[in-house]
Design a protein around this nucleic acid. Structure first.
Length: 639
RNA sequence: GCGAGUAUAGUUCAAUGGUAGAAUACCUGACUUGUAAUCAGGAGAUGUUGGUUCAAGUCCGAUUAUUCGCUCCA
């Protein structure tokens, strides 16, 4: 008998050689039907693999991430089998499970595969899935493995096997298909009920652009048709919310071929939105002791030589701007920090002045690779809600707390509720590659960890992910569709104060190096507004909406009254417009609804007579009539 | 940057290698409108650029923009 420890801590006894499936059946038949694989002492095992020793076992179902992984990994095998059946002679690369589905890298040789081929492959996969072929695990010697794939003439698998140790190699076989694979897999292919191949992309063998480009087929599969339908609906919803689509429809921003790719142009409505957002943040920052500054968009090359940015990014960025003067070169600023360091350094500072918080909505330019550009989330010119805090090492924690508080406050105000902090610390194995003293690093890392705990933030800690110049914290935010976005960041920097030789005079009357903290709660206005647009599906909070109301006169006889109402509202700082087109009211309402104008005020004969407005809320409908004063209070309630 | 797609009117989509069409938006006129699309008329387009062809939106090349992807390692 062996002892099996289950996740709840209970220990059960089973015959030696029992399987995960046996264990599942001993618990309940329902569980046995749903179990896909098992985690045995941390490794993913097939449900029919004999367990010979005491072990801790977690049964994995569709609900577990690892269960989904096994499911999708198995689906990748089925796809490979289907592809081999349809296109004999292809060479297979790797086929792992990913966050949402799976892919397989395939060398199709001379053949090209297009989207039109996908339905055929899906059909073949479903046909193979219905055969309920078991995934059979086989341990093979390295020699046998090499022999098999030499026979099959698959250079990619041979290369993989070459890197593996003899004795650790396993094959999996299902139907007529055998693949080199570590496992584990689901019991048989019949579990796969719904399959959708998503797209085709090129991918270098092993991700190295020196290698051959293979064709990568992405797919997703589910145990139930309904789940696929739901997943596709989610994708549809995401498509509807795509900020590039909404940005164009709501006239927030545009791109121009003539201006250049990756350079967003803010249209009047987008500017109204962005200005509001900036004003909101500026006010919050001033409350929290920040000092606003403005610095130029370019700086001499020497500035970035001092900061080190030129050495690191110069070659791969926008090239220097030349002037009529021989040898004079300016760079578009890729960062605001060098300018802010100059501001700090322009006069001596006492420790009594610290922390000094220099804030700027600074527009920076970075030459992102063409393939990296994407809507507002990846651009070449963008405005950071930047600030640099210069403080003593002892003030780091307090400053972190302040920044965390500010960040969480603004994100909550914008309707984001679910956030996580990713803390990036030094690689403990390789401390030499970081600059700054041991004492400062320990102090800062401890400060970050404590600060996140004190504000009750969920955290993920990544060792070795810190920048060479200091530890950092990145804000991850989940949007309304459950997608994660990286937004703001807080970074400690021991490098720039050194390079710019920044100092403050301590209580000991000696010069000291301040610690610099870079922080941007939104990251960039562009990226943030992109994420926000998708989060709220274009229905921005009332206080941010580019146009808060539309006045819809029933006919042109009521324009004068409409104008009167607009003026009264403008006096109360409520912004909007009059739809004075010669259209029926139904049409005006529809257009305002589609444009996601939050409030519609309908004025006709009755309203003019009663000195009222008929209020309608976007997505909700008629709210009845009220006087303009009543509406103003009603409006303020909604804010 | 590399690979694979895509590029037709302001927008969303049509068009066997043979006269570029529609819807919507826009302009004009009529209707004077009561809670999600009034009617009629008008104007408006093949990203740029070279080639193949009697003939190119369609085929080939270049270019620009755009989309997806480019180790989440059997």
């Amino acid at each position: 008998m062996i002892n099996i420890t289950l996740p709840d801590g209970s220990v059960r006894q089973y015959d030696k050689g029992t399987t995960a499936m046996d264990i599942a059946m001993s618990i309940s038949s329902g569980l046995a039907r749903n179990v896909l694989a098992a985690k045995v002492d941390g490794e993913i095992w097939d449900t029919d693999r004999a367990i010979k020793n005491d072990a801790s076992v977690q049964l994995l179902t569709w609900k577990d991430k690892d269960g989904k992984n096994a499911f999708w990994h198995s689906s990748a095998h089925v796809m490979a089998e289907a592809l081999e059946a349809l296109y004999p002679g292809i060479k297979l690369g790797i086929g792992p499970a990913i966050d949402t589905g799976f892919y397989y890298d395939v060398d199709f040789g001379e053949r090209t595969i297009g989207p039109a081929d996908l339905p055929k492959i899906e059909a073949k996969m479903l046909e193979l899935a219905r055969q309920k072929n078991s995934f059979v695990r086989k341990e093979v010697s390295k020699a046998d493995a090499i022999a098999y794939f030499t026979e099959k003439d698959d250079p990619y698998k041979l290369e993989l096997i070459n890197d593996l140790e003899d004795g650790s190699i396993t094959f999996y076989e299902q139907g007529n298909f055998t693949d080199l694979c570590r496992g584990g897999h689901i019991p048989h292919t019949g579990y796969i009920k719904a399959i959708k191949l998503m797209n085709i992309a090129g991918a270098y063998w092993r991700g190295d652009e020196k290698n051959k480009m293979m064709t990568r087929l992405y797919g997703v599969s589910f145990p139930k048709q309904k789940e696929l339908t739901e997943y596709l609906q989610l994708l549809e919803e995401a498509k509807k919310r795509d900020h590039r689509k909404l940005g164009a429809e709501l006239e927030l921003f545009m791109f121009s071929e003539k201006v250049g790719s990756g350079l967003p142009i803010w249209l009047p409505k987008g500017t109204a939105l962005r200005t509001r957002l900036e004003d909101f943040l500026k006010k919050e920052q001033i409350k929290r002791g920040y000092t606003p500054v403005i610095t130029p968009h370019i700086g001499k090359k020497e500035l970035y030589m001092t900061s080190g940015h030129y050495e690191k990014y110069g070659e791969d960025s926008f090239q220097p701007i030349h002037t009529p003067r021989e040898g004079e070169e300016f760079l578009l600023k890729p960062m605001n920090c060098p300018h802010h360091c100059e501001i700090y350094g322009h006069k001596p500072h006492s420790y009594r002045e610290l922390p000094i918080r220099i804030a700027e909505f600074g527009t920076v330019y970075r030459y992102e690779q063409t393939g990296e550009l994407h809507g507002l989330t990846r651009v070449r010119g963008f405005t950071q809600d930047d600030a640099h805090i210069f403080c003593t090492p002892a003030q780091v924690k307090e400053e972190f707390l302040n920044v965390l508080d500010l960040t969480m406050h603004v994100l909550k105000k914008l309707g984001f509720e679910d956030f996580t902090a990713q803390i990036s610390l030094r690689d403990p194995e390789n401390k030499a590659k970081y600059i700054g003293t041991e004492e400062n690093w320990e102090n800062a890392e401890k400060a970050i960890i404590e600060a996140t705990q004190e504000v009750g933030l969920k955290t993920v800690t990544e060792l070795g992910e810190a920048a060479f110049y200091g530890p950092k914290l990145d804000f991850m935010v989940k949007d309304a569709l459950g997608r994660s976005w990286q937004l703001g960041t807080i970074q400690v920097d021991y490098n720039l104060p050194d390079r710019f030789e920044l100092e403050y005079i301590g209580s000991d009357n000696q010069p000291h190096r301040p610690v610099m903290i870079h922080r941007a709660p939104f990251g960039s206005m562009e990226r943030f507004i992109g994420v926000l647009t998708e989060h709220c599906a274009g229905k921005f909070p009332l206080w941010l909406a580019p146009e808060q109301f539309a006045i819809l006169p029933i006919s042109e006889r009521f324009y004068d009254y409409a104008k009167e109402v607009e003026n009264q509202l403008a006096a109360s700082d409520i912004r909007g417009f009059i739809d004075n087109r010669n259209e029926k009211i139904g049409r005006k309402i529809r257009d305002a609804e589609v444009q996601k104008v939050p409030i519609m005020l309908i004025v006709g004969e009755q309203e003019v007579n009663d000195k009222k407005v008929a209020v309608r809320i976007q997505g909700q409908g008629d709210k009845g009539t009220m006087t303009v004063d009543e509406f103003v209070s009603f409006f303020k309630e909604l804010l």
